[in-house]
Design a protein around this nucleic acid. Structure first.
Lengths: 250, 250
DNA sequence: AAATTAATACTTGTATACAACTACTAATTT
DNA sequence: AAATTAGTAGTTGTATACAAGTATTAATTT
């Protein structure tokens, strides 16, 4: 499995025509590369190299790395480097618990009213999903797109921010579920059925049902992760590998 | 009411002996000044002036302002300036609702085990509270100290971060409750009874009860805020002043 | 006199030289 | 040979000159 591109240039080729991205765009781009494991945990992110790759100086890069550090995706050490964070199993579990719990909060407090554009977006998204051949990479990105869309259905900006931050810290483990071609197909199937339900909820204008569905699929994913962990490393939480990287190696 | 010191130098006098603060310390110091209304909403924060005041260059100041912007306390506009954010009444209400809801999450998911140092801290804090004469300023800071202590009783760093961020965005309105000497006394009384209950919970090792108490006092504060608003500007949420600044002016 | 425009002072954003720190390597000492 | 030390390359942190943008003021035009 190719986790780490030797140079980020390749990943940037599509945007070379318009060299200078905004800081926010650089942030989103880098975040995606981390969340899709193109930049694996423990990868060293050199400010100078990133600056070269994105055609900017170190200053905007440092702004981006600061944001990523606050989000918990990057860890910077003076004189040493900036490193993509790793997550241990215990942490991951507690983040999942928090995410699941936070969905109840969203269901209780959210007052967003769905409009036609929302339905149109999800319809178009569904069409893309059912008519495409997916790789792990592209399916991962699609699922992130769906998450980001779902975030726009939350009216409270704080809730949106919290939910997003937690998502970014768990989504990398999604990859663990899809090492085989079989699992990938299952995942695509699962996404399609979820989408059908989500669209139904959206067309009824029921955001609470929408997020209840999202919650149930999140819980299912969590169950899958737990089963995967226990199948490979048993019930004892202390003996198994603690980090994502170790799990991928074994 | 003196909301805005002409120059921050005065507020810094106590730390002039050791001029160079760490970035984190500068962040905390500036955050306190914003949360205690020493720096009122809409105050312009000049990077150059702040750099002079804290004996550093603009670079560390920009790091701090970035953090404060992510926390929602500061708003930076290119070419114009950095401004302390204001909060409107609707926003404030939804933040309170979220904070109240988040306490339930803390009660459900928290697994922190209380130790002797925790009890000792709260005991010492109680002694300070009952034996001191409080100004609005010092009482405000004491309540922030209590919040920060309570945060250390949460084991999940994400929950801690979220709760803190929400707190920082509501605590400035605490001031609205204490324009009169009477209200200040009431508040001190309230703090003392809360502390007695919190200590009892802590000594039993019951963090869930501890946070249930915290929650009930938060709800009480929210009720007070609502009553104050309605008493001054009626039930219609749209006619009253939308911003904190306007409310203080009237 | 009013409206428009140009000029100016001031602000944040960017690039970059240098300082502080880390980690690895090779030379030196024991 | 092993341990220690000094050196060196490479990293992030800081200070600062300059670029880009804003907002006020003064000059110009109508």
């Amino acid at each position: 499995m190719m986790l780490n591109t030797p140079s980020p240039i390749a990943a940037l080729s599509s945007i070379e025509a318009n060299p200078r991205l905004s800081n926010e765009q650089i942030l989103q781009h880098l975040r995606r590369r981390i969340c899709t494991l193109q930049l694996a945990p423990s990868t060293k992110l050199s400010e100078v190299k990133l600056a070269r790759d994105y055609y900017v100086s170190r200053t905007p890069i440092r702004w981006v790395l600061n944001r990523l550090e606050m989000e918990g995706l990057v860890n910077t050490r003076h004189g040493s480097g900036s490193y993509v964070t790793d997550v241990n199993w215990q942490e991951l579990r507690s983040i999942y618990h928090l995410r699941i719990d936070l969905y109840d909060t969203v269901i209780r407090l959210n007052h967003y009213t769905i409009n036609d554009k929302d339905v149109a977006w999800l319809d178009a998204f569904q069409n893309t999903v059912v008519s495409s051949q997916w790789s792990s990479q592209s399916l991962s990105e699609a699922i992130m797109d769906l998450f980001e869309f779902s975030s726009t259905l939350i009216d409270d900006p704080y809730l949106t921010q919290f939910a997003s931050q937690l998502y970014f810290n768990t989504t990398r483990f999604w990859w663990l579920l899809h090492s085989s071609k079989d699992a990938l197909d299952t995942e695509q199937q699962s996404l399609e059925t979820e989408l059908a339900q989500l669209i139904a909820a959206l067309k009824l204008g029921q955001t609470d049902i929408y997020f209840a569905i999202r919650k149930s699929y999140l819980m299912a994913n969590y169950q899958k992760l737990q089963q995967l962990y226990q199948a490979n490393w048993g019930l004892d939480k202390t003996t198994g590998p603690t980090n994502l990287m170790k799990m991928l190696d074994e």
